[in-house]
Simulated assay, not measured.
Amino acid sequence: MHDQRLKDIVPFVTSVESGSFTAAAERLHLTGSAVSKSVSRLEARLGSRLLERTTRSLKLTDAGSAYYQTCLRIMEELAEAEAVLAAQRTIPSGRLRLAVPTTYGRLGVMPLLIPFSQANPDVALSLTFSDRFIDLFDEGIDMAVRIGGSADLPASLGCRQMGRERMVFCAAPSYLAREGCPTSERELLQHRAIMYERVDGSTKPWLFTTADGHPLWRDQPYRMALGDVDAQVQAVCAGLGVAQMPSWLIREPLARGDLVIILPEQQPDGLPLSLIWPRRKQLLPKVDALLAALEHLTIR
């Protein structure tokens, strides 16, 4: 990338942020004509109009919006690279973007982020709560907590395995008082099931461990199938049936006595928990500090 490309990016980004060439020129200590020519030169080189000009304002085109987001990432990465190379920057600081699963992020990650934030007042945490697959590079994420989906990662990503889920069968005491407590796999399969429904409409089968230690998946007729784990917990606590869920998800209902574990000998391992981050960001003090803060993250 030659110098002129970098020179044109700054006036373009500043013009978008300022809303006009005149305001951008004031911020950059240039003339309005110089800023306008710089953006026009950028558009000519790219062969695409980035901004719609009116007498009062500037508006991004679709192509301009996509290019603007790319420019922001480039400028942020340059700033982070300078921070890594600056010997005096040893205190974690700057914006830190973390992506976490929706429910596990609330129950498992947030209790660790609160003391981290208190200990690092110069770090501005930005959290994305989502159960969808997130591309760290496309979305500018510094670190992700991921349940499952960590196999075959590219070499550009660092990964730390934090353990695997422990799957347990559970029900409300009111349900067991009414329907009886199963004492075997065969009896369990006769009970009303509250299943988790995947995005494609299928239900996640129950997982058992065979006598020789192998996993065995069983589809189960259900009374209710829910595509949200919090709703699934609510239904089971209400005494509507039996469910198999990760132990981290029902830790609080178990402690309150709203749920009890059944068939305790059947507690197979579920999905893995991983911390994932772009390797080029690992030397940043803020990322290194967050890795240390999450080293005690657990999913069992």
Score class of each variant (00 low, 15 high):
146 R>M: 11
204 K>R: 14
156 S>F: 00
180 G>N: 04
158 G>E: 08
154 P>R: 12
166 R>S: 09
164 R>G: 00
147 I>C: 00
170 C>E: 07
146 R>T: 08
205 P>D: 08
172 A>Q: 06
173 P>E: 13
198 R>K: 15
156 S>Y: 00
138 D>F: 00
200 D>Q: 07
180 G>V: 04
163 G>F: 05
180 G>I: 00
176 L>W: 05
183 T>K: 15
142 D>W: 05
138 D>S: 12
141 I>S: 01
137 F>H: 15
184 S>Q: 08
151 A>F: 10
176 L>F: 03
202 S>A: 13
188 L>E: 01
184 S>V: 08
150 S>N: 14
146 R>Y: 05
183 T>G: 15
187 E>D: 14
166 R>C: 09
177 A>C: 05
149 G>I: 01
168 V>A: 03
137 F>W: 07
161 Q>V: 10
182 P>G: 05
160 R>K: 13
194 I>S: 00
143 M>G: 01
201 G>I: 07
186 R>I: 02
136 L>G: 04
206 W>F: 12
151 A>L: 13
136 L>I: 09
204 K>T: 14
163 G>A: 08
167 M>I: 11
176 L>M: 08
178 R>E: 11
164 R>D: 00
153 L>N: 10
180 G>H: 06
157 L>D: 05
169 F>I: 01
182 P>T: 04
191 H>L: 15
153 L>R: 05
172 A>K: 07
178 R>I: 01
188 L>A: 04
142 D>Q: 07
182 P>E: 05
208 F>R: 04
168 V>S: 02
168 V>T: 05
149 G>D: 11
207 L>K: 12
207 L>F: 06
180 G>F: 04
179 E>N: 07
189 L>W: 01
165 E>Q: 12
193 A>L: 09
162 M>Y: 02
142 D>K: 06
137 F>V: 14
199 V>G: 10
174 S>N: 11
143 M>N: 02
206 W>P: 01
171 A>E: 04
145 V>Y: 04
181 C>E: 15
174 S>I: 10
171 A>R: 03
149 G>R: 05
145 V>M: 06
171 A>P: 00
156 S>P: 06
146 R>V: 11
193 A>T: 06
182 P>D: 04
186 R>G: 00
153 L>S: 10
171 A>K: 03
158 G>S: 12
159 C>M: 14
174 S>D: 13
188 L>S: 00
179 E>H: 10
176 L>K: 01
146 R>E: 09
148 G>S: 11
172 A>L: 10
201 G>H: 09
203 T>S: 12
199 V>M: 11
161 Q>D: 15
179 E>T: 02
138 D>I: 06
144 A>M: 10
205 P>Q: 06
188 L>Q: 00
169 F>D: 00
137 F>K: 15
169 F>Q: 03
172 A>C: 10
181 C>D: 09
190 Q>H: 08
196 Y>E: 11
189 L>A: 02
137 F>Y: 12
198 R>F: 14
185 E>S: 08
163 G>R: 07
180 G>Y: 05
